[in-house]
C-alpha cells in the first residue's frame, strides 16, 4: 500500500532541488565574499598585467559575476566541480578518490554504532529506573561528553604507543613487504581500521542509545505491549518483538539523517588518524585556500543532508503505518 502520494513525493523532490539550488547560490556568494581570491596565491609580484589576466582567464574570473554565477550553477548541476588549483586535478576526481575511504571508516563506525546503541537503549529503556539503567546511562553520558579527538588520542597512546598492538595512522601499510591481493588488502585495511573504529565507536553508539531509550520507554506503556504480556508471551519476546520493533522507528529515521553527517564528522577524526579521506581533504583545502575543493566538499555535505531528509520522509511511511504523506491532496 502506498502511504506517500506521487504528487506529494514530486513536490518534495522539487523542494529538495530548489533547496540545493539555494545552497549552491549561497556557496557561490559566500566564497566570493571572502577576502581575496583563490588565485591570489598563484599571482606573483613579478608577473606582468597580461600574465595575471591570463591566470584570471584560466579560472574564469575575467567574466562578469553574473556569468560566473550562471556557469557555476550549470557546472554544479552537471557534476562538474571544477579544478583544484593546489592538486592540479579535477575536484570530482579528488572527491571520488577520497569519498570511499571516508565511507569505509565512518560506514563501519556507523554500523557498529547503530547496532550497539539501539540494543543498549532497548535494555535501558525496558528497565528504566533500575540501577543498571542509572549506572550505564550516566556513564554513557559521561563518555558522550568527551571530545572524540581526545578519546582518539587516548586510544592511540594506549594501543599504539604503549601496547604497540595497532597502527595509529593511514588506511594501508605504506611501504608493504607483501604482495597486494584481495585478501591482503582486506586484512590490511581492517588492521588499520581497528583503532579509528574503536575510538569513534567508543562513544559513537551513545547517540543511537539516547534516541532508543526514551522511545523504548514510551512503548512499554502502549496497549499492544500489555496485550502481548496478557497473552503470556515471555518478557524477552515482548521486549524484542513487540516493543523494540516499534521503538526503532525514530532510531531508523535518525540513522538515515545521520548518514549524511558522516563527512562532517570525518574532519577531526581523519586528521587525528591521518586517514586520507574527505575530512582531511576539507581541512587541507581550507588551509591552502583551495576554494573549488572546499566549495565542492561543502556542497556534497549539504546535498547528502537534503537527499537523506527526503529519503527519511519516504522510509518513514513504510516504517510507521500510521504516517501518511499527501493523503488529502
Amino acid at each position: 500500500m502506498t502511504r506517500i502520494s506521487g504528487r506529494y513525493l514530486a513536490k518534495r523532490i522539487v523542494v529538495s532541488y530548489l533547496t540545493l539550488l539555494v545552497i549552491m547560490s549561497l556557496l557561490f556568494v559566500l566564497l566570493r565574499s571572502m577576502p581575496g581570491s583563490f588565485i591570489t596565491s598563484m599571482i606573483n609580484p613579478q608577473m606582468t598585467r597580461e600574465q595575471i589576466e591570463r591566470i584570471r582567464e584560466t579560472w574564469g574570473l575575467n567574466e562578469p559575476l553574473w556569468r560566473q554565477y550562471v556557469q557555476f550553477m550549470i557546472n554544479y548541476q552537471t557534476g562538474d566541480f571544477g579544478r583544484s588549483p593546489t592538486y592540479s586535478t579535477a575536484v570530482s576526481e579528488l572527491m571520488l578518490r577520497r569519498l570511499p575511504r571516508t565511507l569505509i571508516l565512518f560506514g563501519s563506525t556507523f554500523i557498529v554504532g547503530y547496532i550497539v546503541g539501539p540494543l543498549v537503549g532497548m535494555y535501558l529503556g525496558w528497565w528504566r529506573g533500575s540501577n543498571k539503567d542509572k549506572s550505564i546511562f550516566s556513564s554513557s553520558l559521561l563518555m558522550y561528553s568527551m571530545p572524540s579527538f581526545w578519546i582518539a588520542w587516548l586510544f592511540i597512546w594506549l594501543f599504539n604507543y604503549h601496547l604497540g598492538w595497532l597502527p595509529s595512522s593511514y588506511m594501508f601499510t605504506q611501504f608493504p613487504e607483501f604482495e597486494w591481493t584481495a585478501f591482503t588488502v582486506m586484512r590490511d585495511v581492517l588492521y588499520h581500521l581497528a583503532l579509528p573504529l574503536l575510538s569513534v565507536s567508543f562513544i559513537g553508539w551513545v547517540g543511537a542509545m539516547l534516541i532508543m531509550r526514551p522511545s523504548m520507554n514510551n512503548v512499554t506503556e502502549e496497549g499492544y505491549v500489555f496485550l502481548a504480556r496478557a497473552k503470556g508471551l515471555s518478557e524477552r519476546t515482548v521486549m524484542l518483538k513487540h516493543a523494540a520493533r516499534n521503538a526503532l522507528i525514530p532510531v531508523a529515521t535518525g540513522a538515515i539523517v545521520g548518514l549524511a553527517f558522516i563527512i562532517d564528522g570525518a574532519v577531526v577524526i581523519e586528521n587525528v588518524f591521518s586517514w586520507p579521506g574527505m575530512g582531511q581533504l576539507i581541512v587541507n583545502a581550507v588551509l591552502s585556500r583551495d576554494f573549488p575543493v572546499a566549495q565542492a566538499a561543502f556542497f556534497v555535505i549539504a546535498a547528502l543532508i537534503v537527499v537523506m531528509r527526503l529519503f527519511t520522509d519516504v522510509v518513514y511511511t513504510y516504517l510507521d503505518p500510521r504516517i501518511k504523506f499527501g493523503e488529502g491532496e
Partner: peptide, 15 residues
C-alpha cells in the same frame, strides 16, 4: 584591479 572595482584586492604584493 580585480573583482572589486573600488579596491585592489586581486594581487598579493610582498611589500
Amino acid at each position: 584591479e580585480g573583482d572589486d572595482e573600488e579596491n585592489n584586492t586581486s594581487t598579493s604584493l610582498n611589500n
